[in-house]
């Protein structure tokens, strides 16, 4: 039971951590000063959430585990984020689409976690949901703006949706840990999230004139530690300092 909860915290934390890292890569590279700051703010929000999850996870693990050891010393197969959040910052359209696909899920997830029987998760969800409501508002308005902006922005958005939509299903497909946590009253009910999620996402896409891919093909594996080829690069960047100078601190 403790092990399942620990793994559940890693899944929650890793989604925020890897997406936060992807957004941090844009610091100083955003398309305008204002969007640069917006994306960096969101990255910091996500890292704040990661700290809460991993501090709690470290307490459960006992021993030498700390939030830092959990964040910086795990290998690729021990990361449980969904594949969507590790996809690269191809262009601003990809950044926004990835963000919206995740934010819509994140918002529905946190709404349920606000009812969690686990006090810590419940408290983290209450704090995080305010941040995520803003992320969702930001990414959703940008989805509309770019899809209905110019011919070029529309084409770029369509390309981003075509390439990222196949990563969405994994978010709402419960694995063994998530099922167990839901049964315990700790975790969210992903089946109910899934129907609202696709109502929202598909509804928005058709409202703003974007097509979802017809194939109905979806990728999965991230939650079980099977990642895309981008992940090794993320880790080598993310863990560089701790691997090169073990136990270094600020």
């Amino acid at each position: 039971m403790q092990d399942k909860l620990y793994n559940y915290l890693l899944m929650l934390g890793d989604n925020s951590m890897i997406l936060g890292h992807r957004l941090s890569e844009l610091c100083g590279h955003g398309p305008s000063l204002e969007t640069d700051i917006a994306l960096t703010n969101m990255s910091l929000d996500l890292f704040g959430q990661v700290r809460s999850y991993f501090q709690y996870a470290a307490k459960l693990k006992a021993g030498d585990a700390t939030e830092d050891s959990i964040a910086f010393l795990r290998t690729e197969r021990n990361h449980h984020n969904a594949l969507l959040v590790e996809q690269p910052n191809e262009d601003f359209a990809h950044v926004i689409t990835r963000q919206y696909f995740f934010d819509q899920y994140h918002l529905l997830l946190l709404e349920q976690l606000c009812e969690s029987k686990d006090e810590q998760i419940n408290a983290i969800a209450h704090k995080s949901i305010k941040e995520v409501k803003y992320h969702h508002r930001f990414s959703k308005t940008w989805m509309k703006r770019l899809a209905q902006g110019t011919r070029v922005s529309h084409e770029k958005m369509q390309a981003a949706v075509t390439s990222l939509y196949p990563y969405t299903e994994e978010l709402t497909k419960a694995n063994a840990v998530e099922n167990e946590m839901f049964n315990q009253g700790i975790g969210a009910d992903l089946a109910s999230i899934k129907s609202v999620y696709y109502e929202e996402v598909d509804g928005l896409l058709s409202n703003i004139g974007l097509q979802k891919p017809e194939e109905g093909f979806f990728y999965k594996g991230g939650k079980e530690g099977i990642h895309t080829e981008h992940f090794g690069f993320i880790l080598s960047d993310f863990q560089y300092m701790q691997r090169t100078y073990p136990n270094m601190t600020w």
């Binding site: 305008s32 000063l33 204002e34 969007t35 917006a38 508002r137 930001f138 308005t141 703006r145």
Partner: peptide, 12 residues
């Protein structure tokens, strides 16, 4: 600040 519309200006 720069923004494409008023809503973006508020967010920015």
């Amino acid at each position: 600040l720069h923004a494409s519309d008023a809503e973006m200006a508020i967010e920015n």
